[in-house]
């Protein structure tokens, strides 16, 4: 399906890091509309940094990132704001606002960007919560939720404004296998029903095999992409021994 869809994210010749340290160099890849795209790699390989470059939280040393046709690395503030409307982000721990319940967390975003009446906002928020299976938790505070529920609530919040792309940072980190599988199921379901493009940062093998259409693999030593493709193909016939090791969980 990916071949005929259009490119929604393009990363070109990206090199970046913190201070003088280069963490990623010469990264080039595309994400196609509607696919579940996974950025994977071992600890400390720059997966989360890659995500920060893609959503514009950090600036790379050089290179380009364009999201939904907008080049964001050197974008004007207005352009960047426009780009922001096209994607949502789920941070590792959810980053829900602790002083508000889930309903208010979602409505806050809608209040800021739309002029909908209150009951309309609540309807949208409830619909989003139902979509992630938290329909009966609307008046719960984030501190009353388990880690998995918090992540799902964060997904509901990031979907408030109908993003075309959702970036998920470690959606199954710290979750038990069953909750983790539910999270994968949610990603697949949202991707199928709402045609949202997913960019997922993870290193959990089961979820990679379940959700991924395509993935890229980063490596800490060479600081760049060492493999691109479908996970099953990489597992079976990558010419890089480290990649095969990773997929086959060999020490």
């Amino acid at each position: 399906m990916t071949e005929q869809s259009e490119k929604i994210i393009q990363v070109k010749d990206l090199t970046g890091g913190y201070g003088d340290t280069v963490i990623l160099k010469d990264i080039t890849f595309d994400v196609y509309q509607g696919e579940v795209f996974i950025i994977l790699g071992g600890s400390g390989c720059g997966k989360s940094t890659m995500l920060k470059f893609m959503i514009g939280l950090e600036k790379p040393f050089s290179g380009q990132v364009s999201i939904d046709g907008i080049e964001i690395v050197n974008a004007s503030e207005a352009d960047y704001k426009k780009a922001l409307r096209s994607f949502g982000v789920m941070y590792q721990n959810g980053a829900l606002f602790g002083s508000m319940n889930l309903m208010e967390n979602i409505c806050l975003v809608l209040e800021e960007f739309t002029n909908l009446p209150r009951d309309a906002m609540e309807s949208i928020a409830q619909m989003r919560l139902n979509q992630v299976g938290l329909g009966n938790a609307a008046d719960k505070m984030p501190s009353d939720l388990s880690g998995g529920m918090r992540k799902r609530a964060a997904i509901a919040r990031s979907m408030a404004l109908d993003p075309k792309i959702l970036f998920l940072d470690e959606p199954s980190a710290g979750l038990d296998p069953i909750t983790s599988a539910q999270m994968d199921e949610l990603i697949l379901q949202l991707s199928r029903t709402l045609k949202i493009t997913f960019v997922v940062v993870t290193h959990e093998l089961p979820s990679i095999f379940t959700v991924a259409d395509r993935c890229i693999m980063l490596d800490r030593n060479v600081k760049t992409i060492v493999a691109t493709g479908k996970p099953h193909e990489l597992q079976a016939n990558s010419d890089n021994s480290w990649v095969r090791q990773f997929f086959n969980r060999e020490a």
Binding site: N130, G135, L194
Partner: peptide, 14 residues
């Protein structure tokens, strides 16, 4: 129509 069927407002308390 399918989108309408898969989504609900169930649980919305006025």
């Amino acid at each position: 129509r399918q989108l309408l069927q898969t989504n609900t407002l169930e649980g919305l308390v006025v």
